[in-house]
Amino acid sequence: MASDTRLQGARIRSLRKLKGLTLMQLSQRTGLSHGYLSQIERGISQPSVASLVEIAQALGVTMQWLFSDPKEGCQGEDRPHHERLVRKDQRIEIEYQDGIVDQLLTPRSNNNLEVIYSTYPSGTRSEPYSHKGHEAVLVLRGTLEVEVADERYVLEEGDCLSFTSSEPHAHRNLSDGETTVLWFITPASF
């Protein structure tokens, strides 16, 4: 994961410089400290979900832009289908500082819909964040608490919740074991 963290940091630094921003300006746009952003860019720290959303929004990109695409090295028959097909071993994967792992199941080129497979270790919790669009979450295994604005929902296996993504939302695994969910987000913002 360390090389993924360094690659992610390098992509953030590269895009920040391309946009002509200093670390201090990015800090002001995101509300994240200059030192923390520097650590992220150098691959020393992994950002939380909320921090990554802030960085991506401040840089004017979706979160997936900040990560390498396993399909870039794709050969053979899958190459022509990259606009439609994502094989299991070709998913873009993001691991956050708290151990939450997201895998993008839809192609990067799909700007209308994203489907994300997420795993939450026991007790993990995201910070509240918001973004444009709408989303729904379906619990595949475990128990996930989702807070939207000031309302809390406890979702069990098979439960599905939908909401407007511009409302601050956070989630927490209430299970003793791992919880897995599918997120459906429109438009693409991951």
Rank of each mutant, 00 (worst) to 15 (best):
L155P: 01
L23N: 07
A10N: 09
E41M: 02
G60F: 03
R13Y: 03
R108Y: 06
H171S: 15
P121Q: 03
I116C: 02
L174M: 12
S122H: 03
Q64G: 15
S166Y: 09
D159F: 01
E157C: 09
P47D: 07
L23V: 13
M1Q: 06
E145L: 14
E145R: 15
F67E: 10
D69H: 07
F163S: 10
R42M: 13
S166R: 13
L85I: 14
L15T: 04
M63Q: 11
R152K: 14
E77S: 12
S38W: 00
L21M: 14
L26Q: 04
N173D: 07
I100N: 05
A58F: 03
S162H: 06
H131L: 11
E167F: 10
L113P: 10
R108Q: 12
S118E: 13
E156Q: 15
S118T: 14
Q103G: 04
T180H: 07
T179R: 01
M24E: 13
R84Y: 14
H169N: 12
S68F: 07
R125M: 13
V115S: 11
C160F: 02
D150Q: 12
V181T: 15
Q90F: 06
T62H: 01
G31K: 06
E54K: 13
E151D: 11
Q25T: 10
Q57T: 12
S122M: 03
I94T: 13
D4Q: 12
L15W: 00
E93T: 12
Q64W: 03
E151W: 00
A10M: 03
R29F: 09
N112W: 02
S126V: 05
S189H: 13
Q25E: 15
M24N: 12
P70T: 03
H82S: 07
E147H: 05
W183P: 00
H34A: 07
G20I: 05
A2H: 08
D176C: 01
L23K: 05
F163T: 07
I94V: 15
R141K: 14
E151C: 06
S166K: 06
I116Q: 07
E167P: 00
L18W: 01
E135R: 00
S38I: 04
H169L: 08
G9C: 06
C74Y: 02
T180P: 03
E54D: 12
T164S: 09
Q39D: 11
G43T: 04
N112G: 10
D176I: 04
R91Y: 04
S3H: 09
H134A: 12
A188Q: 07
D176F: 02
S48K: 01
D98P: 10
L85C: 09
V49M: 11
T180R: 11
R141W: 01
L161V: 02
Y129E: 07
V86L: 05
S3W: 02
L174F: 06
I94E: 08
G158R: 10
R42T: 14
P121S: 06
S38F: 01
P70D: 06
L23H: 00
Q103S: 14
R16M: 10
D98V: 04
D78K: 01
N111T: 10
K88R: 13
